[in-house]
Amino acid sequence: MLTIGLTHYLILAAFMFCCGLYVMTIKRNAVGILIGVELILNAASLNLVAFSRYKTGLLDGQIVALFVIVLAAAEAAIAIAIFVNYYNNLATIDVDRGDSLNG
């Protein structure tokens, strides 16, 4: 019977990280990119909790994970407020449409 160990969690987290990176690069919709960011942050949280449980045996990794969740929430709040502002000005949230500043 298969016992779930640290490696399994790490592989899952790495997979989530890759999914997040893929979503961030492929999506042109701002909300889509934000979802990619959240995937990566959750991968990091999963890593932290797994390491904390299997490797250090201390609680600090799990507390860091709590901080990461709060960071993700704060970031989403600011990001969505900015998306709304962008939508009010350009009537779209497609990032490629913002081309008045050519960078």
Binding site: A30, L34, I40, N47, A50, L71, G98
Partner: peptide, 28 residues
């Protein structure tokens, strides 16, 4: 201004999420 802040927040969120993932690996 709206466009600049959108680009800033997306870049910033993407890089900071990668940074947090790096933090989790360093912790491990």
């Amino acid at each position: 201004g709206a466009e600049a802040s959108l680009k800033y927040v997306l870049f910033g969120a993407a890089t900071s999420s990668i940074m947090v993932y790096g933090l989790s690996l360093i912790y491990g």
